[in-house]
């Protein structure tokens, strides 16, 4: 579903993502873990095509992001780390806006809006302007808008931030359901417990380098994901200092 080959992105002198390669198959929930500034958001933004990259190739369901960005975007839904939505619209207007852009049939759209808005308890607030929404409500709306067009691949940057425990639980269920139907999800998170329980595969990034990836068992073995993540991060730091010395 998603193939990233030797992705490299630099900002001036700083290399944000360095030669990153990753493959996500249909049906997989793939977690992306790393410190702040490790290169997670840059990678996600490069996949969705709102961040150009210097080297490498990204294929979404066999379509190149660089060669056919619009074709790729038709298959993807993206939720950024901060859900800055159109505050001048009401919730329902925003969902219909997304539905129209992705050409979702009105009947199907109505059904999906009802299903997901009811799940998140957002139905009664759909007529309110987004400007009046709390951070959590905006995040719920962004999630519904991502699911409304039934994308093949869903990219999410820190999707659990701002969600209450119930909404987080619902989102986890939606993620699993989506992947069980053959879709794929690639999301970044700092909540390692969630990643450990939810993800089929996980990738750990540090300083733009992918330092370990694979199935949860391959990455963590018998340890907890938190221990492995901290240990790997420290090893990488020590290795870097050693090579500099």
């Amino acid at each position: 579903m998603l193939q990233i080959k030797e992705l490299t992105k630099t900002f001036g002198e700083k290399t944000a993502v360095d030669n990153l390669s990753l493959h996500i198959a249909p049906g997989e929930i793939y977690g992306f873990i790393g410190h702040n500034g490790a290169g997670k958001t840059t990678t996600l933004r490069s996949i969705i095509g709102i961040q150009d990259f210097d080297k490498g190739e990204i294929l979404v369901d066999g379509t190149s992001v660089a060669a056919d960005p619009i074709g790729c975007k038709k298959k993807i839904a993206y939720i950024p780390d901060n859900p800055d939505l159109y505050e001048f619209m009401s919730g329902i207007k925003y969902l219909n806006f997304v539905g129209d852009i992705f050409k979702v049939e009105p009947g199907i759209r109505k059904e999906r809006i009802r299903k997901y808005a009811d799940l998140f308890g957002l139905t009664q607030d759909l007529a309110q302007p987004i400007a009046s929404y709390s951070h959590g409500m905006k995040q719920k709306l962004a999630i519904i808008s991502a699911w409304i067009h039934d994308p093949k691949l869903i990219l999410m940057d820190e999707p659990f931030v701002g969600l209450d425990p119930k909404a987080a639980h619902i989102l986890k269920g939606m993620m699993r359901e989506h992947c069980d139907k053959g879709g794929a999800i690639f999301f970044s998170t700092h909540v390692l417990e969630v990643a450990e329980k939810l993800c089929d595969k996980v990738a750990i990034i540090k300083g733009g380098h992918l330092i370990r990836f694979g199935t949860m068992e391959e990455v963590k073995g018998d340890d907890s994901l938190e221990d492995v993540f901290l240990e790997l991060a420290e090893d990488q730091e020590a290795e870097k200092q050693g090579s500099e010395a």
């Binding site: 159109y86 001048f88 619209m89 009401s90 329902i92 207007k93 219909n96 806006f97 539905g99 129209d100 852009i101 050409k103 049939e105 009105p106 009947g107 759209r109 109505k110 809006i113 009802r114 139905t123 009664q124 607030d125 759909l126 007529a127 309110q128 009046s132």
Partner: peptide
């Protein structure tokens, strides 16, 4: 603020350009 009541309706399907135009008018009039 006056809380608007949500009534479920089936939206009319718009083309991409019409959707973008409506969005621009929405921003202007808001």
């Amino acid at each position: 603020a006056v809380k608007r009541e949500y009534k479920e309706t089936t939206a009319k399907k718009r083309g991409v350009f019409g959707t973008l135009l409506a969005k621009e008018f929405g921003r202007f009039t808001a």
